[in-house]
Amino acid sequence: MAKLNMVEALNLALAEEMARDPQIILLGEDVGQLGGVFRVSDGLQAQFGPKRVIDTPLAEAAIVGTSLGLAVGGFKPVAELQFMGFLYPALDQIISHISRYRNRTRGRYSVPLVIRMPYGGGIHAPEHHSESTEALLAHIPGIKVAIPATPYDAKGLLISALRDPDPVIFLEPKRIYRAIREEVPAGEFTVPLGQAQIVRPGDQVTAVAWGSMVRETLRAAEAVAEEGVSVEVIDLRTISPMDDATVVASIQKTGRGVVVHEACRTAGLGAEIIARVNEKAFLSLAAPIERVTGFDTIFPLLKLEEHYLPDAFRISRAIRKVVNF
């Protein structure tokens, strides 16, 4: 079994699924000859030809809007947006059409497509290249939103997304694109959409994270373990639909929780997770759930970004706080 990083795992998923399903086509800026700015589609145009891996004009609304037409016309488009910071022109198409088409036509049309994009901070990127606005997407009915945190899950989740009959937004934490290498099997396996995973079992505190924050949270769990605090770390893996059952079951066991996200605090998904725990496991709580998040500020340019992003230090402080409540 090969040890792959997330970029390689995503590339493998695309290559295998494109070979299996001739309806899959890739489109976006620089996805062809260049192989994408992060090389996720490296070699795919050479393998599948320019009719299946298509460099488009630079226009996000059009990449996503034409993908709807391509999907209705029989394709399974995989639209790549270069960075989440450039998603917003395409949000109208996602909110007004892609998410609504099946419902508003009572099932006459569906839009089976995948919209991929790198997201999140931590790579010293220029302005507009580091935000995490996944809460905007989780608020939209009619779509699914997946976020892998490991190479294995990246491949398995992307295969699930490609085989899903409905639109899936696929957010890739670019900070860990190449940071983690693990064994990723060749051939098909899937990680189901909508299922969280306990990535570190524990019994005193539940810590919920996704994307690159899973790694930071694991580091924090490691640090507090030395002090004898046992943290159960949950990787949400899909933020919509959200597997709150796994979170609630864990909280019922631990009675304490911390939610970690790099997105802004206010109206972030941390608030949603806490609300659901309150609805379903209020009496299990021994302490208020702590949020460790980005600040309610504009994401700073690269010289200050390390102070913005939650890290193991901040997370471990929050863990100690809920333990000592």
Binding site: T66, G69, G73
Partner: peptide, 24 residues
């Protein structure tokens, strides 16, 4: 395609559909 209220958003769907014809 269904009636489309958000002005001009449907033009992209139409181009996608005709593009599908070309690619297929």
């Amino acid at each position: 395609l269904p009636i489309c209220a958000p002005v001009s958003t449907q033009t992209l769907h139409g181009v996608g559909l005709s593009w599908a014809a070309q690619l297929k």
